[in-house]
């Protein structure tokens, strides 16, 4: 079964005077796999598509099914619950909670969204922190971490709920080449981290080339 099925998906943003067609009749199907990138220049609709798939936004037309759920039918609360259960997010600017330590940031979705009990929570968080190589930094606040370290924490947070799908919008845009490469490699290859999840990420053209060069 497909993980994501989109048919004639369109999205139009209406501002005061102009209508911007961000997506026009996009159809695709993604099978559960391991790693997929939407690559394109800035303004090509990558983020819009990712937001639709992530149930953060509603399409203007067409149909979209993610992990067996008709995204268009989800109301606010149901969409939040659906995201919490099925989707992990990695943001361009990390978006960690500044008042929580690295450990607590990773733990957050398990407490506030999935309500796991403390023992299992701790084991899962430590396992992921170890996998992203951040065990020794777990008590630091985001302010005390470098960009790459923050993104590792963000990846751990996205994966800690064991989602079916991880969506990463320009996860390397705020990182230097070397770090960007490491992060992509982490998400792409380390099955210990990604488990069963399908990773979909958006990348600007240049970044992808460099990633592919670096990684082969």
């Amino acid at each position: 079964m497909s993980l994501i099925t989109a048919q004639s998906l369109s999205k139009t943003y209406a501002t005061d005077s102009v209508e911007v067609k961000a997506l026009q009749a996009v159809s695709f199907e993604i099978q559960a796999g391991s790693f997929l990138s939407f690559v394109g220049p800035s303004g090509s609709g990558k983020t819009t598509l990712l937001n639709l798939v992530g149930c953060l936004d509603k399409p203007s037309g067409g149909s979209l099914e993610v992990a067996g759920a008709d995204v268009l039918r989800l109301d606010r609360r149901a969409a939040a619950a659906f995201r919490g259960e099925n989707i992990g997010f990695v943001f361009q600017s990390f978006n960690l909670m500044p008042v929580l330590t690295a450990f607590e940031n990773v733990e957050y979705p398990l407490v506030m969204v999935q309500n796991l009990h403390a023992g299992e929570r701790r084991a899962r968080v430590l396992e992921l922190l170890d996998a992203v190589g951040m065990s020794d930094q777990k008590d630091k606040l985001p302010d005390q971490l470098s960009g790459g370290q923050k993104q590792r924490i963000a990846i751990a947070r996205a994966l800690v709920t064991r989602p079916k799908l991880v969506l990463a919008d320009e996860p390397t845009a705020n990182l230097d080449h070397e770090t960007a490469y490491t992060i992509i490699r982490l998400m792409k290859n380390d099955t210990r981290i990604i488990g069963e999840a399908e990773i979909v990420c958006t990348l600007e053209d240049g970044k992808l080339v460099r990633c592919e060069e670096a990684h082969g």
Binding site: A80, E85, F89, N95, M97, V113
Partner: peptide, 16 residues
Amino acid sequence: VREIGTIAAIGTSPRK
């Protein structure tokens, strides 16, 4: 606002 957006995106319910 961004923080609220983040926690909402990762699935925190409006009630929480």
